[in-house]
Simulated scan of single mutants.
Amino acid sequence: MNQRGKPIPSLIKNQRLVEQRRRQIVQGAVDLFVRKGFHKTTTREIARACGLSIGTMYEYIQTKEDVLYLVCDYIHSELERRLTEAIREEDSGRESLKKAIAQLFRVMGEMSDYVLLIYQETKSLPKETMKYVLKKEEEITGHFERILEKGIRDGTLSLSPSSVKLMAHNIMVMGQMWTFRRWVLARHYSLEEYTRLQTALLLRDLSLDEGGG
């Protein structure tokens, strides 16, 4: 888990073990946070859920807020990694967009509970930490802005430059919609079908000539 934004002190010097234990803590905490809420969940319950003594857990984190931050950072880092790995320099803007959408939707499907938790409980983070988390969200959206701009330059996508930022946010919301509406969407579509249909709708819109509006 990337700690560039908010270094969380640890009593353990082995970074690989720190990463492993913090992942274990996050996985144990997410279900509790989703079921009971952040404020009603105790650190003792988190320790029990992740199979650690409370003393051992405090060797890797300092506060319950640290756990929530790690959840946020895990999602953003994982999504950023997958976007970076999926997209190739030689791909057209259109092809890059298809790959990026597939990765975004896949992460939203795999981490639905994590994403839901972020939107429910980010307000519980300290102000400076919240600013970092929101900044990471903007950086992910920025990946889609750059892909759209690439497609405009190479002629594989048709979009007014003034609409790029809005379209990038629309794409993010489409991915997040699977998290917030999966209770009904999953009755009608698999995640793969949802991804295919939403991608087709987006690409159809981005193939229209907007007339430079």
Rank of each mutant, 00 (worst) to 15 (best):
H39T: 15
V133C: 07
E78L: 15
Y119M: 04
L206H: 05
M130Q: 11
L17S: 07
V67E: 03
I171K: 04
L201P: 02
A100T: 00
G211T: 06
V18I: 07
D66G: 06
M172S: 12
I147E: 01
K127Q: 14
F180V: 04
F144N: 02
I75G: 02
M177V: 14
F38R: 05
R81E: 10
D205R: 10
L208W: 10
G175P: 00
S112Q: 14
R23V: 06
K136E: 13
Q15E: 15
T42L: 09
L159P: 05
L116C: 06
A186V: 11
G28S: 02
S163H: 12
E19F: 12
A86P: 08
D73Q: 14
M1F: 07
S207T: 06
L159I: 13
I25R: 05
T56C: 03
S96P: 04
K98L: 11
E139W: 08
T56Y: 09
P161M: 10
V26C: 01
Q120P: 01
A200H: 03
T129R: 12
V30H: 00
K99T: 01
E139A: 08
Q27Y: 07
Q176L: 13
L68G: 00
E128T: 09
R21P: 01
A168C: 05
E65V: 10
H76L: 09
